[in-house]
Design a protein around this nucleic acid. Structure first.
Lengths: 214, 214
DNA sequence: ATCTGTTTTTGAACATGTTCAAAAACAGAT
DNA sequence: ATCTGTTTTTGAACATGTTCAAAAACAGAT
């Protein structure tokens, strides 16, 4: 059980800061671990003492961005908005937050998203809490039978949108914004249609996917 | 403009075959370019003479799999089958073809799916042609108003199923098969119900989504 | 058969992510 | 102050994707 010392925490932070600077300047791919180590003033092996891999480094940076997303999206969920509005709001906000980092490259975003597969990841729970809030405060309320599972489905949707955006080369990422505009009403309508057993069964399969993957 | 000789084509093919064997056996990540070169009986540098990168190799393999999918699915489209049967057949066939490569990892599948974003990609047109055939030969015929857009919608469905399957850890990927079983009749029924404005609106949104992303 | 330009092949070198054993620094107990 | 066990740091080594200059093989013209 390795206990971390104050000096250790400092080193760790300086490596993190150095990576943020270099990722922002040169992108994820083109930034080498050697460059990060040099920029931080420590040896290559020392960087690996605190971060098991380059992806883990990106994962930590990404986790900070998710926190900011939650902070910015939460107050926008005015009670009484319909579900479509809440979906659109949260999805657009996540792109707002990630905007400055689009040119980090898809690999960076992918690294961030793969980190969330851990079922114990506390950030996963926090993300779900945001979506739960969006569902509970929406009016009219989604069908009772969906209220339990809906947050997880919408969380899956969010991941899909972010993945799409990460690969979106269109100017200003218009396509991603349009995807949000188009998908939000569709999802909201499908939720209403979940009263049909057939639609419900499909949702159940998707839920199974989330649960199995997460 | 480098003209390729007969011998060159043979070497290229043997590298491709070797990579196919090894990817299937050990997965994408764990297969090294050196192993591929050795298995093919050529030098490492020679493999790079024909394929610029490991990903390019995976890309070509994926394109071959899509071709095989079309080849195997097409004759199963017996005229007179209903739409549900055609949908179920094509989707199950794509999983049959991809089956040995499930453990390639997300990178492989993503590479294959993202490649199709290009509107100029000839394989995209070929995939759409398969779905067009499925729609045109189905009996009873889908509503006239849907016949134009339906192939693109079903192509979107196919991509979604493949993505679902790629992340499906259930034994034998049962869940993916069940998704196909469940989704096929729903989609077919919704096509009939497209006369209802609510359903039609959802389809319009989905079409917009395909066009926006494609 | 020889020459000429092109395609193919090779082996070594390079770039970069990752691991590891040993040294150094450190914290706490005596 | 010294000892002991732990944390931190280092430098070298390793694994693997990629590049490159030179050699070999080849095709076509003379």
């Amino acid at each position: 059980m390795a206990m971390q010392t104050a000096k250790g925490a400092g080193t760790r932070q300086s490596v993190l800061n150095a990576s943020l600077r270099l990722f922002a300047k040169d992108g994820f791919q083109k930034t080498t671990m050697r460059a990060i180590a040099a920029e931080s003033g420590h040896s290559l092996g020392n960087a690996y003492y605190y971060f098991g891999s380059k992806e883990e480094l990106a994962g930590e940076l990404y986790r900070n961005l998710r926190q900011e997303h939650r902070t910015r999206a939460w107050p926008k969920l005015a009670a009484g908005n319909n579900l479509e509005t809440h979906i659109r709001t949260i999805l657009n906000t996540v792109l707002d937050v990630l905007e400055p980092f689009h040119d980090f490259g898809p690999a960076f975003i992918r690294a961030g998203l793969t980190g969330t597969e851990d079922p114990q990841d506390p950030d996963r729970g926090r993300d779900l809490a945001l979506w739960r809030q969006a569902v509970e405060t929406a009016r009219p309320q989604p069908p009772l039978s969906m209220r339990q599972d809906l947050p997880e489905l919408l969380w899956l949707l969010e991941r899909g949108v972010v993945l799409f955006w990460a690969h979106d080369p269109s100017p200003g990422h218009r396509r991603s914004r349009r995807l949000i505009t188009n998908a939000s009403p569709v999802v909201a309508r499908l939720v209403v249609l979940s009263r049909l057993p057939v639609v419900r069964t499909i949702f159940d399969d998707l839920i199974g996917l989330v649960r199995a993957t997460a």
